[in-house]
Design a protein around this nucleic acid. Structure first.
Lengths: 204, 204
DNA sequence: TCTTGACTGATACGACCGTATGAATTAGAT
DNA sequence: ATCTAATTCATACGGTCGTATCAGTCAAGA
């Protein structure tokens, strides 16, 4: 007795399998088997493998984009907002551990970005630009072009998501503990804060 | 009359195609066609698709690992070494622009790491640990567990490699200029230095 | 009860996959 | 010029792929 509808089960199975094996490596046969659905179910409910893939990506990218934009434009000091944005990425990556691999795939691959990823990027990018410029206007973020600054910020959650399995092997069982995860996030935020802080007045 | 041997041409074509489409998405037929070789050439010269893949990875990972270990253990202050290690990643990623996508693939994917990547990681990891501990002993790197520190360092070149195409679109033609690339590397190094620096010398 | 539309299920199709095979060709040593 | 080993080449095989087809099932409205 399964309470989940077939499309729901397909999405869940597809998410994991796409993440584990990439788009090409995932087969409809494997997805439908794991979802306890018939081979034809993907075609029936989603139209094609590619549409299922985009549906899977949307489930992750849409709320991620929304949260990040909200936090990036919140009525708070820029430094604070940068911290909450970083947290948003870590949290969303932790909530759906299958997804980062998917997104990273697509970013690293040369091919054209799938619409759900492209759309979210287009929404998030201007908000982050504005956030950095606000910080520079406030004097809480050091001067300089925004592009490398944004890259240095996003690098923290994305690289963590990329190597989380390896890190888990190195760190051992502690890796699963919430305290350890919280420590990592705190480290990332403070690392970014220090990296972006304006020169101390020692210079003057 | 082609000066390059068939195995050489296969490696070059395979590198690009694996990077563009992932392991599963790349077909031997496409690789051999692009390399102007016969369909059987991969089997003959490398034994199998997987062995070709590992050969492609080795071409990149072995010199990368060697350079990083050299620079991480050089007889210089830890801070300096951290900078040269970061540069090593950027340089190697720039020299073989196809490769990062391959490595990122494998790191993000759940599956077991291919031997060339695993071996290099096993060589590099202790050298980086030692480097951070040296820095902490010197007083030039702030205290704290080495794992998050190493992650924050490596995140810079890896994330850059991951999003370089996107950044190129945002930045425009300047992106190709060597000055721009040098600026990005300099930013990354300084960002890391500031992020890892001990508290200001208020102590003194 | 009958009808209708949504869904499931088994099967089929053509395309492409990695690899194997064995003949044809080439290059080098004698 | 002849022999030999290395390489190239065309072709074939079994398997898996995404998708299409169409008959079967089932629940809800008339």
């Amino acid at each position: 007795m399964n309470h989940d509808s077939t499309p729901r089960r397909l999405l869940t199975a597809a998410r994991r399998i796409f993440a584990e094996r990439g788009y090409e490596g995932a087969s409809i046969r494997l997805i439908t088997t794991r979802a306890k659905a018939n081979l034809g179910a993907v075609t029936y409910h989603f139209g094609s493998k590619e549409r299922l893939y985009n549906a899977v990506l949307s489930e992750f990218m849409v709320p991620l984009g929304q949260t990040v934009v909200e936090r990036a434009t919140a009525p708070e000091p820029a430094t604070k907002r940068i911290g909450t944005v970083i947290e948003a990425y870590y949290d969303q990556f932790a909530r759906f551990p299958d997804f980062p691999a998917l997104v990273i795939h697509e970013l690293a691959l040369g091919r054209r970005l799938p619409p759900p990823i492209k759309d979210t990027l287009d929404r998030v990018q201007p908000a982050l630009f504005k956030l950095i410029q606000d910080g520079q206007a406030e004097g809480s973020v050091r001067a300089g072009p925004p592009v490398p600054i944004i890259m240095s910020i996003l690098s923290q959650p994305f690289y963590f998501a990329m190597v989380r399995r390896l890190v888990g092997q190195v760190v051992g069982p502690d890796f699963e503990k919430p305290e350890f995860r919280a420590m990592l996030i705190q480290h990332a935020i403070e690392f970014v804060w220090r990296g972006l802080a304006p020169e101390a007045r020692e210079v003057a």
